[in-house]
Nucleic acid binder design. Structure first.
Lengths: 229, 229
DNA sequence: CCGTAGTAGTACTAAACAGTAATACTATAA
DNA sequence: TTATAGTATTACTGTTTAGTACTACTACGG
């Protein structure tokens, strides 16, 4: 929980104080210091900072008391502000040329790989082939639904149980943690995944590489079909 | 622009490097150091960090080259992650008791005041009275639209020109930067605004205070109506 | 072949700043 | 006298920024 709150620009101590406010609304700085086991100077500093950041409210009086701003409100405000910043950034950025047809980009870490795959899926215009284990496919449920709802051809190879209305699904008792994703026969993302920060994938738009992986996936599908007879 | 990017967990140096990648895709760390006027050790550190954070991609080769992740993708990923964190935080938080009927909360800073007002507006179930200058009313356009679309009674007192379909609007050549907001005859937010961090407002649910401000607003409306005859 | 210049990358040190931890002090209320 | 309330200050640790030093490689001219 503290970690999640640090995503919203709070220091660990501020996050701890915020959580304390939640279970003890209308407290004084002195009480917070005692509850948190931190010095009063830090408690007052944290409360002041929380108030500035819109996570707490001051009930002025003698003594001053503090209340938390509801988490959905505080977090929602922060996210909305970031959306605005994003709009400003995106509208001020030039278009970036697409490097994918020139070579091979290395994507490291599960998080970045999953983010990259999501982005590819959302930008797909015609068809998508994805082959990945059951533990990973769940990350893409929303994007795959979006695609099937928008009449893209979606072919999925994964472990049972997995179902998705509108998609063509091949069940395979695949071992190992490999990801293969092809979108619009133009981009491929492939490599190992589910190894935390150590996962490494390759992202490319090179036509020959795409063709090689398309053929590999088609062969995988044929083998599954043969096995089902 | 650097400031906006620091909202997305980049240091200022990383943000500067990211912007450089945008105008110079497929560069080496050595080139980045020269363009940014920073030491090569910092350039490599920044590029490594940007790659970890999902803002840049590595084109492995001799030498290594780097490309930016498109800003909408990078920022979108970050915001999505924060939404997830928000969901976790919100679902793990107990309901917080409402302190508003007990006293007077102090809200400081334009940003927090506007955020608080937005929250009050979105939670309004029946009617809203708001009196504020034209330079501020624009912050609430979206929320006010939402209210009128959802059949809440919305009464607005502000400077011309301002219009909103479905709301009752009284034009007033008001001076000074005062905000008065009453929602559902139960909550009031009032004080000065448009003074940056120095603005201070009071937020309360005390019935007598709400009644006093309701009467004050009704009087303001009567005066405007008389003037228009 | 050697020397020079430029490129590529990493290891290390240092200053400034931020976050955390703590002490000391003043003032007030119970 | 004790507890509460709040601020000022110092110290330590970690991060960010700035920089130096070093090794290794490539290209080019003499």
């Amino acid at each position: 929980m503290l970690d999640k709150l640090t995503d919203f620009d709070l220091t660990r101590q501020e996050a701890a104080v915020y959580l304390l406010l939640y279970s003890n609304p209308d407290v004084t700085g002195y009480e917070i210091a005692k509850l948190a086991g931190i010095s009063r100077s830090n408690a007052y500093a944290a409360l002041s900072s929380l108030t500035d950041k819109g996570a707490a409210r001051l009930l002025e009086g003698m003594p001053n008391r503090y209340s938390p701003v509801p988490a959905d409100e505080f977090c929602g405000n922060r996210i909305r502000r970031m959306r605005k910043s994003m709009d400003i950034i995106v509208s001020n950025m030039p278009d970036v040329s697409d490097p994918l047809s020139e070579g091979y980009l290395t994507i490291q870490g599960d998080r970045n790989i999953i983010d990259t795959a999501r982005s590819m899926l959302l930008k797909a215009e015609k068809r998508v082939y994805i082959s990945v284990s059951g533990s990973i496919i769940g990350h893409f449920t929303e994007e795959l639904c979006f695609l099937t709802e928008n009449k893209r051809k979606v072919v999925i190879i994964t472990n049972p149980p997995f179902d998705l209305s509108g998609a063509i699904i091949y069940h395979s008792n695949r071992q190992g943690n490999q990801l293969r994703l092809i979108t619009d026969s133009r981009r491929v993302l492939t490599g190992d995944i589910d190894h935390g920060k150590e996962s490494t994938c390759l992202l490319s738009g090179k036509r020959n590489l795409v063709d090689v992986f398309k053929e590999a996936l088609q062969n995988e599908i044929k083998l599954i079909e043969l096995r089902e007879k």
